[in-house]
Design a binder for these strands. Sequence first.
DNA 1: AGAATTATCCACTATTTACCACTATGTTTG
DNA 2: CAAACATAGTGGTAAATAGTGGATAATTCT
Lengths: 154, 154
Amino acid sequence: MSEALSNGGRNMFLGEYSYTIDHKKRLAIPSKFRKELGKKAIVTRGLDNSLVVYPAEEWEKLAKNLGNLPSSQTEARGFVRIMLSGAAEVNFDKLGRVLIPDYLKEYSSLRKNAVIIGLYNRIEIWSEENWQSYKARTEKEVGNIAERLKELGI
Amino acid sequence: MSEALSNGGRNMFLGEYSYTIDHKKRLAIPSKFRKELGKKAIVTRGLDNSLVVYPAEEWEKLAKNLGNLPSSQTEARGFVRIMLSGAAEVNFDKLGRVLIPDYLKEYSSLRKNAVIIGLYNRIEIWSEENWQSYKARTEKEVGNIAERLKELGI
DNA sequence: AGAATTATCCACTATTTACCACTATGTTTG
DNA sequence: CAAACATAGTGGTAAATAGTGGATAATTCT
C-alpha cells in the first residue's frame, strides 16, 4: 500500500485502501494518512458521489476561497453550498477511526465496504461498488495516458 | 544484463532484469538502479499495464502538474484520480526490495515473475508474461520497420 | 428514570515491518 | 588459476502495528 509522501515539508496522500464500516458507522482511516491529518479533519460531500476529507488547514483555505467565489458562477455556487452545508468535523478515536454521519453515508451510498483514496492534498471516500465501476470506466476513458503525460510535460 | 550508464554525472537506467515477487509482495530492484533512486521512489500505473517507477524528484514535478489540472472537468478529474490513487510511495528495505501494493499488482497482472526494464530516465515493471508477449509483438514490428528502411535504401 | 444513542476502552487476529540466514554469482588478489 | 572475499537475490522468522469487532461507560432525549 502507499503512503503519505513528503513534499517540501508538506505531505501528500497517495494510494487506494479498502476498509469496512461497522454497524456503529465507524470507518478506519489508513494509518499513514492519519499521521498527516492530526487530531481532527473535515469531511464533506465531494464530486461523483464521493466524500472528501481535508486536513483542518486545507479546509480553512478552501472554505475561504469558496466563500469568495464570484456570484457570476451560479453552478459553482450551487456546489459550494452543497459542500459547505455538508461539512462535518470528525475526530478520531484512539484507533484512528472516524464516524461518518448518516447524511454523508447516504450521499455516497456507503454501506459496508468503503474505499479510501489519497489525492495529493485531500482524501476521498467511496463506496466499494461506486469506486470499482468508476475506476473501470475512467481507466478506459482516460485511455491514452501517454498522450496526457506528454501534455503535462513528462 | 546491462546497467546504469554514466552520462555526464547523471546515470541512466538501462537493461532488462528478471526478479521474483515473493508471497510478501516484495520485489527486488536492480542494485544499479537503486543507487540512482535514493531511499524512496514512487510507483504508479504506466502504459500497457506496466508500472512506472519515478525517482522522488521526478514524481514531485508530475504530481504538481496533476494537481493543477482543473477538477471541474470530468475527464481531468478522472485522470487525476487514477494517477494519484494508483501511486504508491515505496521505500527500500535493507536489501533493496520494495513492496508492491495489491492494486498495482492487479493492474499489471503481476504474479510471481517480474521483469524490470530501464528506459533511460525511467524504470518500468512488467509481468513476465506481458513483457514476453509485448516484446515478441514489438520485435516483429521492428522487423517490419527495418524492411521499410531497406526499401528506402537505408 | 429508562431507553437509546454516542463515546471510550479493551481484546483478537491478520498484516506489515524489521532482521537475519543461505546460496549463487561475480570480483579481487595472492 | 584458484582461493578468498564481496555482493546480490531469495527466503524465512520474530516483533510490532494496524484493522475489526465487542463490551462498558457516558450522554442525551423523551
